[in-house]
Simulated assay, not measured.
Amino acid sequence: MNTALKNLIAGAGHVPADRDYARRTLASMDLTSLGENDTDEMIIDLCRRAITPVGRVAAVCLYGRFVPLARRRLAGTGVKVATVCNFPHGGGDARKAVSEAKAQVAGGAEEVDVVLPYKRYMAGDTDRAVSLIEQVRSVCGETARLKVILETSQIRSLRMIEAASRDVILAGADFIKTSTGKVPGGAQLDVAAVMLSVIAEMQPKMNRPLGFKPSGGLKTVADAAGYLYLADQIMGRGWATPETFRFGASSLLDDVLRELGEAETDTELGDY
């Protein structure tokens, strides 16, 4: 990692929260509920929380069985409905992942967050790991945006994260995402800088917009501000919009609303 990037990362770690960062965070949030015991009532409440007095989130992210319900509740609001595939373990069964994604898209999912078979990738079986992403991409087609989760806290090596980011973009990823939130560790600023740098490198070669989604461990506007700062510095101010930048989080919404003077006291849904 070069000195300039290290300096950016150091600066990102000290960005203070303010109302502008809070508004940008709200607009780019994937408000998430991925609990094993989620119910229709919990998802209805999630959809309610997605529309706030100071603006709406970009999307809700939930298990595939709740996609039709969320689509009905959010119709006409502009909030996207996202789901997860091959989640959370990133298994290597491409046929199963493709079948799952196909059902999700048929059910109305507008975005699919699929987990790269990261253990297979780390073991050197990169072709088969990336092939799963290509096959899920073919199912999503032009109907659903594909966001690929690398599970970066498990890969750990920045060099391998860089290679995996490049590989999944070539395989059809619209977004590259750090984490599932289901294993220890989550988004980290140095990882974000590497992934954003790959996007900056790859974007001129692609015929579609590329995006970035940090996820895992983001609880405050100050947490989020560091990632927006990196995006502004690496990609240019104005790049990080809901079309190219998302936060995967649930409890982050509470701090955003506090920063904007709209405190909410709902029970946290978890950290995803």
Rank of each mutant, 00 (worst) to 15 (best):
A192P: 08
Q135M: 13
I133M: 12
T152S: 03
V105P: 14
S138E: 15
M122G: 12
G216P: 00
R128G: 03
L210P: 11
G216W: 04
F212K: 00
A163C: 10
S99W: 08
T180A: 08
P204Y: 05
I176L: 07
G107L: 13
N207F: 09
T152F: 02
A193R: 05
A187D: 07
L132R: 07
L230R: 05
D223V: 02
E151T: 06
D127G: 11
R156C: 14
A187S: 06
P184A: 03
R156L: 14
A171Y: 04
T180S: 10
M235L: 15
D190N: 10
K182D: 01
V139P: 09
L218M: 01
Y229C: 08
L170D: 14
S197W: 07
P184H: 02
L196G: 03
E100I: 05
I149M: 01
A129D: 09
E142D: 15
A231S: 01
L218I: 15
A224D: 12
G211Q: 05
V139H: 07
L228D: 00
D167G: 06
L116V: 06
L170G: 11
Q188N: 11
V105I: 13
I234M: 12
D232V: 02
M122S: 15
A187K: 11
R166S: 15
V191R: 02
K213T: 03
M235T: 00
G226P: 02
K102T: 14
V183C: 13
L189E: 07
Q135F: 07
Y229G: 07
V112L: 13
A106D: 12
Q233E: 14
Q233L: 02
F175G: 00
V148L: 09
K119C: 12
L210G: 12
A123G: 11
V136R: 06
A164T: 05
G108C: 08
L230I: 07
A144Y: 04
K205P: 02
A103R: 13
L170R: 14
Q104S: 12
D174V: 04
K205M: 13
E110L: 10
V112W: 02
L170C: 12
A173L: 01
N207D: 13
K205G: 02
Q233H: 08
A173H: 05
K177Y: 08
A224Y: 06
K177R: 13
E201L: 11
K147V: 12
L116Q: 05
E201G: 04
Y118V: 12
V98A: 02
M202V: 10
A171L: 00
K213S: 03
I149L: 03
T152C: 07
K205T: 15
G181W: 01
E201R: 09
L189D: 03
M206R: 12
G181V: 00
K219R: 15
V221G: 01
A171I: 02
G141V: 07
I176E: 12
L158V: 11
S165T: 15
